[in-house]
């Protein structure tokens, strides 16, 4: 009974901590992204705390619900988006700390959870009753279907290779992080894993609806797309969800491809090890987001929706299959 209560308390406190950390760090990440983008465009850019100021301002604004919107769905969508984004973080290791709900879910669950914020946005878009939002919602669904293929290919290829190497329970995040793919694969497999990393880096902007895959939110054609009717508090919640989702997606890449910690360099001092691991994790997340969001955002222009599908299904899907094949050939070479 006492043990059950302890476990319950652990989950509740862990959830609160992860939610606060995810929201704070998510906004920080958005600020870093805007600053870096500005510097790459020879601008000075907003201060790092700009997203916090934006959120504070949005909370002060009037919250308009359009006349022809389905109001309960319209109001529920931002809550769902934020809650689902925080839930993804609960299943992911943060720094050296194990995931709060790690025992209950694996990478397949994360793949499904990653679609929930996007689905909430689609629901909100349809519920707002604006033609712009409807077109945006349709585009978001198409994008979602497009990036699922490369994403699933990456996850399955990695887990399958680990299974061939004799790792127990290869889909769980604990085994994915304790045995990085680089430690089990041979030369061919490492090339394959690098290709899969590139695929995952290009899936990230699609997952987060950032340039060049921000077709659903296209400011110039759709006037904000899915978000067009949202204002005030609801818009602030979508803003927060965007930040948390960025952290979650980067954490997936960190957990799969860059799981190393720093704690083994300071043996004997567990507190220092945890702190170091945590800071190192923040550095890794920022590095991953710099490459996969900021750099790609500055370097590329927006794709049309048909180009998004071709890009994900043909080119990135093909690259994913190539990576999978290389990992397969590698496993034939002798385990």
């Amino acid at each position: 009974m006492i043990e059950q209560l302890g476990g319950f308390l652990y989950v509740v406190l862990g959830t609160i901590f992860v939610a606060l950390f995810g929201i704070g760090f998510g906004l920080g990440v958005l600020g870093v992204d805007r600053k870096l983008t500005a510097h790459m465009q020879a601008r000075i850019g907003p201060p790092l705390r700009q997203p916090f100021i934006d959120i504070r301002k949005l909370l002060l604004k009037e919250n308009i619900i359009p006349e022809n919107a389905i109001s309960w769905l319209f109001n529920a969508a931002p809550v769902f988006a934020l809650a689902a984004s925080v839930t993804i973080l609960l299943y992911l290791p943060i720094g050296g700390l194990p995931p709060v709900l790690g025992v209950y879910g694996d990478i397949i669950l994360i793949m499904y959870l990653l679609t929930v914020p996007a689905l909430a946005m689609v629901t909100g878009g349809f519920a707002s009753g604006s033609p712009y939002a409807t077109v945006g919602a349709q585009r978001e669904m198409i994008t979602m279907m497009a990036y699922e293929l490369p994403l699933a290919t990456v996850f399955i290829a990695l887990a399958w290779r680990l299974a061939r190497a004799g790792v127990q329970d290869p889909f769980s995040l604990a085994s994915l992080t304790s045995t990085p793919i680089w430690s089990v694969a041979g030369p061919l497999g490492i090339i394959g894993a690098l290709i899969l990393l590139i695929v995952l880096i290009f899936v990230t902007p699609g997952e987060l609806s950032r340039v060049p895959f921000d077709t659903p939110e296209a400011e110039t054609e759709l006037a904000g797309g899915l978000m067009v009717e949202y204002s005030g508090k609801n818009l602030a919640m979508f803003y927060l969800a965007q930040g948390v989702k960025s952290v979650a997606m980067a954490s997936v890449i960190v957990a799969l491809f860059l799981p190393w910690g720093l704690s083994e360099f300071v043996p004997g001092i567990p507190a220092l090890g945890i702190l170091l691991d945590f800071l190192w994790y923040i550095v890794k997340v920022l590095a991953v987001l710099f490459v996969s969001v900021s750099l790609i955002r500055v370097a590329m222009a927006r794709f049309r929706i048909s180009q998004v599908v071709t890009m994900y299904w043909i080119y990135l899907g093909g690259l994913g299959i190539l990576g999978l094949t290389l990992l397969f050939l590698d496993s034939l070479g002798g385990v």
């Binding site: 301002k57 308009i64 400011e219 904000g224 067009v228 204002s231 818009l235």
Partner: peptide
């Protein structure tokens, strides 16, 4: 610059 008057100040 935002694309929708709903977001504007």
């Amino acid at each position: 610059l935002v694309g929708s008057p709903r977001h504007a100040d």
